[in-house]
Design a protein around this nucleic acid. Sequence first.
DNA 1: GGGATGCATGTGTACGTTCACACGCACGTT
DNA 2: AACGTGCGTGTGAACGTACACATGCATCCC
Lengths: 345, 345
Amino acid sequence: MSNDAPTTEPERTRAPNIRDVARVAGVSYQTVSRVLNDSPSIRPETLARVRAAIDELGYRPNQAARALVTSRSRTIGVLASQTVHYGPATSIQAIEVAAREAGYRLSITNISSGDYASIKSGLDYLMSQSVEALVVIAPQVRVFEAIADLQVAVPYITLESTGQNTQHSLWVDQVTGARMATRHLIDLGHEEIMHISGPQDWIEAEARMQGFLRELDDAELRTRAPILGDWTASFGYYAGLELLRYRDFTAVFCGNDQMALGFMHACREAGLDVPGDISVVGFDDIPEAAHFAPPLTTVRQNFAEIGRRSIELLLGELQGERDLSHEPVRPELVVRRSTGPRSGR
Amino acid sequence: MSNDAPTTEPERTRAPNIRDVARVAGVSYQTVSRVLNDSPSIRPETLARVRAAIDELGYRPNQAARALVTSRSRTIGVLASQTVHYGPATSIQAIEVAAREAGYRLSITNISSGDYASIKSGLDYLMSQSVEALVVIAPQVRVFEAIADLQVAVPYITLESTGQNTQHSLWVDQVTGARMATRHLIDLGHEEIMHISGPQDWIEAEARMQGFLRELDDAELRTRAPILGDWTASFGYYAGLELLRYRDFTAVFCGNDQMALGFMHACREAGLDVPGDISVVGFDDIPEAAHFAPPLTTVRQNFAEIGRRSIELLLGELQGERDLSHEPVRPELVVRRSTGPRSGR
DNA sequence: GGGATGCATGTGTACGTTCACACGCACGTT
DNA sequence: AACGTGCGTGTGAACGTACACATGCATCCC
C-alpha cells in the first residue's frame, strides 16, 4: 500500500484526549476540564467553543483517569445471592436506576452458595474494585461476619434482612408481615396452622418464622415446628405431599409465593380444595400470585422502594450525613381467594 | 485540637502503593508489578518476599491506574431491558459468573422503555465506561440501529433475539421452539389455535409468532391474527376473558409462561377445563410452570447456556479469533398436563 | 489612584500502574 | 579470552485527568 507521508503521521486511532479537545477549541486543557466539571466561571463563548470541540471529536472523558486522580471509583458494589428471584431482581433494578441517576455505576456480583468463603470472596472481589459503597442483598446471616472480617471501610447497607444491626440494614418489616399473615388466618378461625419457612441461614426466613411464632403465641395457639424449605415451588409441592398425609392443620403460611404455589399444587393432587379444606398464605406478592389457582393471599413487599432508599441512604452517608435514621418499610397484606374461614370438619 | 507533629506526619491513611510494597519487600516497584502480572522470570525467593509484603500491607492493585495505562477497562457492558424477568435474569447471572472467571467485571444498565432514545442513552452510558465488549439482552428491534448509529467499535452480541444478524446474535431458536409447541397442539388434533404474543417490538416475540404461523401454514390450518400482549400474567388473564367470550378455538399458544398462567386463570373463571376444553402451551419453562394448575406444557430455553456462550464468544473475539461460528441453542418441548386431545364438541 | 477583590484562564504536579528499555551477571559457545 | 544469550532485576517514561496555585485583566471602593 502507498505510504508516502513520512512527516506528520495522522496519528494512530487513539481516543481523543482532553488536550486534543483543548487544541481544537483553542484553549488550555484545564479549561476543558472545567467545562467537563461544570465549573461556574467559564465565559459562555468559551463554553460553546469547548462543547463544539467535544462534539466534533466525539470526545468522552476517560473514567479510569478520572478515578485515578480523584481516587473515587463512582461505583457502588452489590453483593447478591439470588438475582433470579423476583425480590432481589426488583430491588437491584431500582438500585441501578437510582445509582445511575446519581452518577454512580454498579458492580454486581453473585454468590452461588451462602457459605462463608463464598461471601467473603464475593466481598473481596467488590472491594478490589474499590467500590465507594456496598449494598448487600444476600440475606445470609454470615454476611455481617464477613464484612467485619474484611474490615470493610465503606458505607454499606444490607437489604431484605432484619435484625439488630439497624444502622446498616434496610428492610421491609418481615416480622410484622408474618404477623399480619398469621393474624389473618387466626381471624378466619384457624387454630392449627403450619409454616413452611425459607432456608434457615436467610435472615428474612428467620424473621418471618419469628413473626409467625409470636403471633401464634399471642393468640395462645399451639405452635409447631416449621418446615425448613428452600424457597422453590418444587419444595412446596413435595412438602405439601408429605404434610397432607396427616392433614392435622387447616391453614398454611408459606415463606414465599413460590412455595405456596407448590403447596397448592400438592393440595390439588390430594383432592383438597383451597381454601375450602385448607387456607394458604404466601409472602412477597410476585406479579403472578394474583393468577394462581386460586389467587393467592399474600404479603406484599415493596422491593423497589427499599432498593431506591438504600441508594439514597448510602449517597447521604457518602456526603457526610451522619443521621441515617430510617424506618423499616411496612408490608401490606393482600387478601385474595386462597384463604377462607376454617371449615367445619 | 492538638496538632503538634509538624515534622514527619505518619501519613494520612492512604491505600498502600505498589511502591510501598516494593519498599517493604526490598525490591523495585517493577518487580512487584511483575509479581502481580505473573511474570515468569522471578526468583522464587523474591516472589515469596513480595507476596509477604503484599499480605502485610493488605495491598490491592488499583484498577483505575491499571485501566489507565493499559487502556483496557476489563469491563463487559450489559444492556438489559427486563432484568426482573426470569429469562434475562438467568442469563445475566450466568454472564456475570463467566465474566468474573475470565477476570472481567460487568456493568449492567437497564433501559426502562424500548424506545430508541432510551436504548441509545443506555448504550451511550455503557460506552462512556469504555467497556471492552457488549452483551445486549434487550431484544428490541431498534437495538441494531442504535449500535450502528453510535458506531460501537467493540465486539458485541445480542441475546434472546433472532434474525438476520447471525454474526452478532446468539439465541435459543425461537422459531423452532414455537413450531414445536404448535406442532404439539396440531398433533393432538387441534385445528383452531390462538396465539397470544409478546410485544411487537421484541424480536423474540416476533420470532415465536413467525414459528407459530409457519407451522400452521405447513399444516394448512387456518391462521388468525395473534393477540399482542405484554408478557404479564395480567395481560394473559384479561385477554383470556375477552377471547373466551367467543371461544372459537380449542388451543392457545402463549408467548410466555406468565401469560399462559393468566390465561388459565381466565379459563377457570369461565368454568372451562384445561386441558379438557382448551389446551394451553407456554414458553420459557420458568421454574414455577411445573406447578401451575394444571402443570404447564411449555418450551424450555436454556438461558444460562446462552449467557455463558455469549461471554465465551466475546472473549474469543477479544483475543482475535475471527471464527465466531455458533449455532442457535435448541429449545426443548416439555409436555405436562395443560395440553390434551381436542375435545369433541 | 492604588490596593483589594473577583473573574477567566493557564501552568505544574500528582494519582498508581504498565511498558520499553537498560543493566549486571552467570552461562555456554567459538 | 571474547562473545552472544538468557535470566532476574531496575530506571525512565507515559497513560488522561483533577487539584493547587499562579497569572492577567477588569472592577470596585475608599
